[in-house]
Amino acid sequence: MKRNLWIGIVLVGLNAAVALLTLVWLPYGPAEMAGGRLSPPSWAHPAGTDRLGRDYLTQVMIGARIAMTVGIGATLLGGLIGTTLGVLAAFARRGLDDALAATLDILIAFPTLLLAMLVVAASDGASLWTAILAIGLAMSAIIARLVRILTKRVLTQDYITAARCSGLGWGRITFAHILPNIFPTILVALALQFGLAVIAEASLSYLGLGTPPPNASWGQLLQQAQSTVFRAPMGVIAPGLALVSLVLGINFLADGLRDLIDSDGEALTPDEDLELGVKGPLP
C-alpha cells in the first residue's frame, strides 16, 4: 500500500511549496495593515484579518516557511548529533556505553521547554535559531538512543565479522556497512521527529520562546487569536489547519516510508517500533 506515502507527499509538498512561494510572493506585506479590525473572510482576505487588520492568509503562509525551516533545521541538527553519538555509544566499551545510555535517558526525560528556556537565556533572546537549537538538541537524544540499538544489532551480524577479518577499519565499516544498513530506519524516525519538531516549534512560539514577532509562526498566531476566537474563529482555524496538514502529512510520509522498508524485508522489532514513536521533543 503506497497510499500513505502519496498522501504524505502531497500534504508535505503543499506546505513546502507554500513555504517556497513566500520567498518570492505574498498576498500582502507581513506587517501591512490592509483590512479592518477582524474582517470576516472575503475574496480580498480569504482567512480574514487580525486585530491590526493584517491578512491572516499571509501570516499563515509565512508560518509555513517558519515551520519548514525549524523542522528541517532541527531534524538535520538532531540527526547529525544523534547519529554520531549513537554510533559512538554502540562502539564504546561496556562501562562507557552504559554511562552514555543513562545520559541519553536523562536527556530524553529533560523537558524541551526547559531546554528552550536555557538556550534562550544563554543567548540574546528568543529567535528562530534558539528554537532550532533547543528542538534539535532534544531530538538528538532520541535519535542517539535509536541509532545505538540499531548499530549494536548490526554489529552482531556475520558480515561485520567478515569485514573485520578482511582488515577494514571501524571507520570504513561504519560508513560502508553500518550507516547504509540503519539508514532506512533512521529516515523514518527522522520523518516522525520532523513532525514533532513542527509541533514543538508551535508550542515554543505560543509561549514566546520561538521566533519573535512580527514573524508569524503558527504557534504565535494561535496565541494572538485566542482572545478573539469568538469574533474571528478563522484566526485560530487557519493556523490550526495548516499545522495539522503539515504534521499529518509528515506522519503519513513516515508511515509510507516504513511500509516501503517493511516490504523490503527489513521488518522492525517491536522494540524499535517503540523507539520510533515513543517520544517526541515535546515537554
Binding site: 506587517a31 514577532p213 512580527p214
Partner: peptide, 29 residues
C-alpha cells in the same frame, strides 16, 4: 509574552518603521 503586549509591540514596530526607527521585539516572561 501575554496579551495585549505582543500585538502592541508589533503595532509599534510597524508604526515606528514609518519614521525610520527600527524596533527589535524581545519576548520575555
Amino acid at each position: 509574552n501575554y496579551d495585549p503586549h505582543p500585538i502592541t509591540a508589533e503595532f509599534i514596530k510597524a508604526e515606528l518603521a514609518k519614521i525610520g526607527v527600527t524596533v527589535n521585539i524581545n519576548i520575555i516572561t
